[in-house]
Computed example of a mutant assay.
Amino acid sequence: MKKDFYEILGIDKSASAEQIKKAYRKKAIAYHPDKNPGDKEAEEKFKLAAEAYEILSDPNKKAKYDQYGHQAFDGGGYGGGGHMNMDDIFSQFGDIFGGFSGGGGFSGGFGGGGGQRRVKGSNLRIKVKMTLEEIAKGVEKKVKVKRKIQAAGVSYKTCSTCNGQGQVMRVTNTILGRMQSAATCPTCGGSGQILDKKPADADAQGMTTHDETVPIKIPAGVVDGMQLKVSGKGNDAPGSNSLSGDLIVVIEEVEHEFLKREGENLHLDLYISFAEAALGTAKDIDAVNGKVRIKLEEGIQSGKILRLKSKGIPNINGYGSGDLLVHINVWTPKTLNKEQRQFFENALTDDNFLPHPEKTDKSFFEKVKDMFS
């Protein structure tokens, strides 16, 4: 079972952005590979801390994690033991460690250590439409994407501008003296390499466009707008030591013809006739996991809500399923023939047809309250 991100950083859910950053810095310094050479356990904790910080430092990702847990980001390569590699961490969060150990910094891209970094390709973003039935069960979708990949036969050589370091040093004269700073190499873009040999079908960076079918496992209970990440299925980046970007999958929920979703609960308007309401009947209704037969007792009233336990949408964290709420509506005929009209005219003075609500009959507001409780 995946460890809670708040527990990894040693904070609670009310922690501020500054407290989250401070907690991550403390953990990452403690478990950094430079301080724990050869210690695989420390390296794993270092990666998990970075993974936790990646989510909790982003307000949108944090909100989704607070609501849905780890499964808000599951889907092809995320989670489970630290999905980030060292180069991801160095390139994304290196600024947090400035000034450590008296300003010397860490190696591998942190602080002032510098050095060649691995360039990551751009992410791709697609929308995947899902029906309520698919959301209720979870599915594997296969999507076709156009990716930029390194062309066959392309080769790269060391950048002469930065000598393969990916950075160039700049010296600036100030009133305080000469100041030295590092900047990304303008020639190679930080990869430390430039194009050497380029096939005829490749672009200026040695890339070609490739159609690829990517399988995506989508868990049950996803919501409209949720994003899943498939690592390494975005665009490639130039260079022999580069990383591929990611494929970001955005869930688009298709509106159901009859069922309306409210979180994990589903709502259905069921219309019945006067005769069915008076005599009672059985109805087959379509739920997301198949047909369900319900029994309507004699004298059922319009506005009655029947709750079918666990016939809604599964909780994305595996905590059971929501309910299906069936709203009873007694249909009033708009036209009557002579015999039908005579029947209802006689019923106007029949005491049995006059409204006699009982104390146990709930008001509209009480029904709404029960529905949301």
Rank of each mutant, 00 (worst) to 15 (best):
A183S: 13
A200E: 15
Q193A: 06
G192L: 09
A202Y: 04
Q193H: 11
D196R: 00
P186T: 08
G206H: 01
P199F: 09
A204V: 10
C188H: 04
C185V: 12
A200N: 14
P186H: 11
A202N: 04
T184C: 00
Q180R: 14
S191C: 11
T208D: 03
D196N: 08
G190L: 02
G206A: 07
D196S: 08
P186L: 11
T208G: 03
M179C: 09
P186K: 02
T187D: 08
S181C: 09
T184H: 04
G190P: 05
Q205Y: 13
S191W: 06
A182V: 01
G192M: 08
K198T: 10
A200R: 13
A200P: 04
G206M: 06
G189C: 08
M179W: 11
K197V: 15
P199E: 14
C185T: 07
C188R: 02
T184L: 03
A182P: 01
D196A: 08
G189K: 06
L195I: 03
A200G: 12
T184N: 00
T208Y: 08
R178F: 12
D201P: 02
Q180M: 15
T208R: 08
C188S: 00
K198F: 06
A202D: 05
A183V: 10
D196V: 01
G206S: 08
R178W: 06
A204P: 01
D203Q: 06
L195A: 01
K198M: 02
T208Q: 11
P199R: 13
R178T: 11
M179F: 10
A183N: 12
G192N: 03
S181N: 13
A182S: 12
A202P: 01
Q205T: 15
D196C: 02
D201V: 08
M179P: 01
T208F: 07
Q205F: 12
T187F: 00
D201T: 13
T184S: 01
S191L: 09
D201G: 13
D203N: 15
D201F: 04
K198L: 10
C188V: 02
I194T: 13
I194M: 07
I194E: 05
K198D: 05
M207I: 09
T184G: 04
D196E: 10
P186C: 10
K198S: 07
K197I: 15
A183Y: 08
P186N: 10
I194G: 02
D196M: 04
S181W: 07
A182Y: 02
G189D: 07
A183K: 03
